[in-house]
Write a protein that binds this DNA or RNA. Sequence first.
RNA 1: AGGCCCGUAGCUCAGUUGGUUAGAGCACACGCUUGAUAAGCGUGGGGUCGACAGUUCAAAUCUGUCCGGGCCUACCA
Length: 1009
Amino acid sequence: MSPKNRCSAGPGTATSHSLHWRTDLMADAPQGRDYRETVFLPDLPGDPFPLRAGLPKKEPERVKHWAEIGLYHLLRKEAADRPKVVFHDGPPYANGPIHIGHAENKILKDFVVRTKQMAGFDCDYVPGWDCHGLPIEWKVEEDFRKQGRKKSEVPAVEFRRACREYADKWIPLQRDEFRRLGIEADWDNYYTTMSFEAEAAIAREFLRVVRTGLVYRGSKPVMWSPVERTSLAEAEVEYQEKTSPTIWVKFPLRSAQADGDANRDEIMDASIVIWTTTPWTIPGNRAISFSSNIDYGVYRIDSIEEGLAFDPWVKVGDKIIVATKLADDVLRAAKAASWKRVSDFDPKNAVALHPFRAHGYDFEVPLLDGDHVTDDAGTGFVHTAPSHGADDFVIWEKNFGQEGIPFTVDEDGRYTKEAPMFEGLEILQLEGKGLGKDGPANKAVMDKLIEVGALLARGQLKHQYPHSWRSKAPLIFRNTPQWFIALDKPYRDGKTLRQIALDEIDRVDWGQKRTGETKDYNRIRGMIEDRPDWLVSRQRAWGVPLPIFVKKCDGSILQDDEVDARIFAAMKEGGADVWWATPAQDFLGAKHKADEYEKVEDILDVWFDSGSTHAFVIGNPEAPTRASFVNPVSTIYLEGSDQHRGWFHSSLLESCATRGKAPYDEVITHGFTMDEKGMKMSKSIGNTIEPQKIAEQNGIEILRLLIASAEYGDDLRLGKIMIDQSGEMYRKLRNTLRYCLGALRGFEDSERVPLNHDLPLMERWLLHRLHEVDAAVRKGYETYQWRMALGAIVEFCNVDLSAFYVDVRKDTLYCDAPSSFRRRATRTVLHETFSRLTAWLAPILPFTAEEAWLTRFPESVSVHLRTFPETPDAWEDDFAGEEVAKLREARAVVTGALEVARRDKVIGAALEAAPRVFVKDDGLRASLQAVDFAELCITSGVTIVDGDGPADAFRLPEAPGVAVVIEKAPGVKCARSWKYFDPATADPRYPDITSRDAEAVAAWDAARA
RNA sequence: AGGCCCGUAGCUCAGUUGGUUAGAGCACACGCUUGAUAAGCGUGGGGUCGACAGUUCAAAUCUGUCCGGGCCUACCA
C-alpha cells in the first residue's frame, strides 16, 4: 500500500458542517449575521482525537488490537525484500516481575527496532529469556526446604525440573508486561536458554571451544563452605564478625639481594615476619608478598620484656625483617623491650624458607612484589598461600602460572596429604555442638610453629569474616579443580583469544564510530585486556553441563565427533538432563570404555549460556535461524552498561573462540535508572518506581517519551517532576497532531497544489524546515540519538508550527475560501507535515502515532507498516529559509512593541493594531514589502517606512535598524475574521466583513443554496 | 580501595577545533486571546557551568586535586 496517496480517505469533508444557527451568539450581534458557522474551525466531529488521551485505558486496547491483526507478521511480510538488520535481544532473567530497568532496556530496544524498520530495513526482533542459574536455584531450593527436603536429597533431574517450571511460570508474565510497554516483537516465538534446543546448542558450543584446544583444567581458590561441602558464589557470602587468632611467623631468609653487601652478615641470619589470622593456611604457604613502595628494615632484638606470665618466643639477638613503619608494633607484640635497626632491606629477589622446611616443606619461599600489600597493618609482608586467597592466587599465577599450587584442603575442610604432619585435621568442626567453630587445625599449626621456633607472637582479632548466608558457618578459600578457557594461548592463525577479541573490539562500533563517544569502547577494551582466563565450570545443579569426558590416564579431553554428535542429539531430544540421566557408555559408544573416562558433572557458567545465544537465536550468517537473519548489514546488541562485564563480554569471547569474530557489529549501552535525586533505586529505601504504575497512572507513552528525551547512555533520573514534564511534552506533541487533524479535515487529492517555488513564501519555508527536520531526525535515529531526533521534532512543533506557522495561518485556514490557493497550499504542506510527524514519532510514541494516523485514515492498517516518507531535496530552499529568518527577526520587534502597547492598554488583541515599521536597510525593507507582513504579525495592517523611526519607537538589540510604533488599526472589525478593515472596500452583499471573507461566505452560501 | 563514567537554570538537554554579556524547551510569574480553550500567543525572572587550584592574553571547554553520584571489580593477609 502507499500511504502517501491515501489522503482522499480522510474522515469527513469540508461540507459536512452541521447547519444549525447559533442563536445565542446572534443575540449578542443583533444587527449582523453570525458568521461563525462559515468559519472553518478545526474541531472534528465527535472529537476522535481528544487532547486528554486516556492513555492508561487506550494503550492496552491497542496492544490487543496489534496482536489481533498480527502486526508483527505484517511487518515481516512488508519488509521481506528489504536489507536485513538483526537486533539480538539480550535475555532478561526469568524471575520476578519486571522493574523500571527492564522497561528502559526494552523501550530502547524497541526504538532501535522500529526506527530500523521504518528506515527501510527488515528488523526482526526475537525476544528471549535467560533461565539457568543461581537465583532460580535458590528459590527452588527454598521451596523444597519448605517441604522439608534438603537439596542434597532431591535427585538432580527432579530438582532441575522444578527449576524449569519456576522459570516457565515467569516468562509469560514478563512477556505480557513487556507487551504492555508497546514493545513490538515476536512474542509467540521467543527463545529461552533452557529450551532443549538451546541447551543442546550451548553444549555444542562448548564442545566447539574444546576443539580449539583452549579448554584446560586448572584450579582456583573459591569460597568454600566445609559445613555444606559446597562452593559459594560471591552473592551467597555475607561478612560477619569473628574472632580469629593472629600469629606473627618468622620465615628465615635463604638469600637476599644484599649478597656482597656490607650488611650481608646482618641480613643473612634474619627472618622475614608475616602476620596472618588464619594459621591453618601456613601449610599452604608458598610465597611472601611485599610492596616495592614500602620501606623495610632488619631489626635486632637487644632485650626482652621482663616479668611476663609466660616465656616469650623471641630471644635476644634474633633478627627480624619488617616494614619500617610497622616495626615498633611488631616488636612490641613479640614482647621485645629494646631493639636496633641494623640494616635496610630490599626484598626484591630475596628468597625465604618455609618454617616447616625440615618436615616435608622443603621448598623455597620466593618474595613477590604485589600491589595488594600495604603497610597499614601486619608486618608489611603478606603471607601468600595461593590455595587459600584471591590475592594470593592472583600474584602466584602471575609469577608462576598454575604450577605449584597445592591442594592442601579437601572438600570437608580437612588437610590432605599435601599438608604433611597435619593430614586429616579439620579446619572447622563438622558436627556436634561446635559445628562451624574452629577445628583442630589452627591449634596444631600454631603448636608446631612454636615447636620449630618460628612463632614470633600471637594474639586475637575481631574482624569481618566471610560466612555462608544460609548456614551462617564460616567459609574458607579452598583451591579446587576447575575448567578454564585460555585467553593467551595461540590457537587461530597464531593469535590468542584475547588478541582476536581485542581486534574485534576495534572492528565493532561501540559508539566510537557513530558519535565519537569512546567510553564503551574503552571500557570493554580495558576489561578484555585485563581479565584472567575464563573460569567456566560451576559446581551447581541448574544449568548446562560441560559435556566432556576426561581420559583418566592422561587427563586429556575426549574429542570424538561421533560422541559429540550423540551428546548433541540426545540433548536436543531430552534437554541437558540427559547428561545426568544417561549412562556414560551410551554417549561413548563402542569405541571408548566408560571406566576409562571421568564424566565431568560440573555445569557451565551461565554467562557461557547467554554468551552462546547468538549461536542458537540468530545463528551464523550461513546458517541463520530465520529468513530475516540472512546476510544482515548489521547485527546490533543493546544492554545496560553492566553488561560490559556480562553479556557483551561473554558473547564476544564465546564467538571469538568458536568463530573468530564478535557476534555483533554495533553495541549500544544505557545507564541505570535512578530516583529523582540521582540515587540508586532500592526496595529497602523505597524510592523505586514501577513501570506498571507509570502505565496505569500516566500511560507508557509518557515513559517512552521521557526515555527518548534523556541522555540514556548516562543514568536516567526518574521522579514525579520528570514524569510530569514528559507528560507536558506529550501534550504538546499530541495537540500538534490534533490541530493538524482538524486543519486537514476533508483534505482531498484534488485540493493539493504542486510543491514548487510558486508556493507562498510561508509554505516554501515550511517545506524547507521539513527537509531540515527530516535530516536531523534521520541522523538522530541512525546514530541512536533519540534525543536529537525528538528534540528536532519538538522544537519544530513548538517554535515553527505552533508559535509561528499555524498561528499565522489560522486566518487562512479559518477564513479563506476553500478554493483559495493560499489555503490549499497551507493544507497541502500541513498534509505533508502530518505525514512526517506521524512517521517520525511512531518509533517513540507507537500508540499515539497509530491513533493519529488511524484517525485520519481509518481504513489504513497501521502507521507502523510505513517507512519514513521521502523528503525531496527540492524542498530545500535556502532563500525561503533566510527570508523567513529575517522576517521573524523583524516580527519579533513588532511582537515586542505590541506587548508594550498591550501593557499600556492601547490594544488588547494584536488585530487591533496596525504597526508602523521603520526599516533602515533597503534589503530588509524589500523583504518585508515582498510579503504580507501584517499577516505574519497577525495585525490588521502594517505600514513599512524607510528610516530610523522616532526616538521613542520600540527597538530590539537583536534587530538593529528596525523600529516599531504601534498604532490602532483604522476601520471597523470584520464580523467574521475580526480584522479591522475599511468598510468602503466591503462587498455590498456582506457589508460587515472584508471582501476576502465575503468571497468565502458567498461560496459557502452558494454550496447551500 | 582500584578501573571506567557522570555532574551546565527547578526539570530534560544544546553549547562546534578554549575567544565578546552561557542557550533551548518544559516548569514558574505576569499579560493577551477566548475560533487549537483542561488549549493557543507574548513578556519576564532564574545559572559564581559540582568545588578548588593550575596552564593561557582568554576556560563551561585543557590539566590536577577534592566533593557528590553511578556501573564494574576488590574488601584484606
